[in-house]
Amino acid sequence: MFVKNKEGTRAIMPINDFANICGYFYNAAFNNFNIPTPNNGYNCKHPNCDVIEDGYGCCYTFSCPLGWEADDEECNEFGLDYEEGEFIVTEDRDILDKLLE
């Protein structure tokens, strides 16, 4: 599920939907020692991922290099109910193009 603005220059969506199309998300649920990885396996391999725990990039709305965490105002603008950490906003052209496919 996603919602684009009228101009098609920005979109908002749940982080789970975003993770499925961004191209950098991966689920490293367990490391080589069968120990759960940080962030419950919500991991990121983007080179600009700045939240690294135990050597694993962590996928969060607040630190995504391809977007930013939606605030209450942005959720209202797109007709969504705000929930902290739930929605991500992006202006990344590659992501927007994938939404049109």
Rank of each mutant, 00 (worst) to 15 (best):
I12F: 08
N43E: 11
F87A: 02
D97M: 11
A11V: 03
I35T: 11
N76F: 04
L66Y: 07
F62R: 04
C22L: 02
N16Q: 12
T90H: 09
D72Q: 14
G23D: 15
A28Q: 03
D97A: 07
P14N: 07
S63V: 07
C58M: 10
M13T: 13
D54G: 08
P65S: 08
V3R: 10
C44W: 02
C75Q: 10
F30K: 14
T9I: 00
E86D: 01
D72I: 11
F2L: 09
Y56W: 10
P38Q: 06
N76G: 06
P14R: 04
F18Q: 02
G67N: 09
F25S: 02
E83V: 10
G41T: 02
D81L: 02
G85D: 07
F62G: 06
K98G: 06
M13Y: 12
T61C: 13
W68I: 07
L96A: 00
F2A: 09
W68V: 12
E101S: 11
P65K: 00
Y60F: 13
C49N: 14
F62E: 13
H46F: 08
C58Q: 06
Y60Q: 10
K98Q: 15
K4A: 05
F62K: 06
L66M: 15
A11T: 03
T61R: 01
V3M: 01
Y56S: 00
F2M: 11
V3W: 03
D50R: 14
C22E: 02
L100M: 08
T61P: 02
N48W: 07
C22A: 04
F33V: 00
G85S: 11
M1V: 08
F78A: 06
C75T: 07
C59M: 12
G41W: 02
D94H: 12
K45M: 12
L96C: 01
C59D: 04
G85F: 08
R10T: 13
F62T: 12
L66E: 05
C75E: 12
E74H: 06
L99R: 00
C49D: 05
N20I: 02
P14E: 13
I35S: 09
M13S: 14
I12D: 02
H46M: 10
W68M: 08
K4L: 06
E84A: 12
T61G: 03
N76I: 09
A70L: 03
N31K: 05
N43G: 14
Y26F: 15
I15V: 13
Y82D: 07
Y24C: 01
N43F: 04
N32V: 05
R93C: 00
E91G: 15
A11S: 04
N32T: 08
N31S: 00
D54E: 11
N34W: 05
E74M: 12
S63M: 15
G85W: 09
E86T: 10
N48R: 06
N48D: 11
Y82P: 00
M1Q: 11
D94R: 13
E77N: 14
D50V: 08
T9W: 03
F25V: 02
I21V: 02
D97N: 15
F25L: 01
L80N: 05
F87L: 09
W68E: 12
A29N: 06
A29D: 04
M1E: 14
V3Q: 03
E74P: 00
A19F: 05
C49W: 05
A19S: 09
L96V: 00
E53I: 13
D17V: 01
G23F: 12
T37I: 07
N39R: 09
D71Y: 05
D92Q: 04
L96N: 04
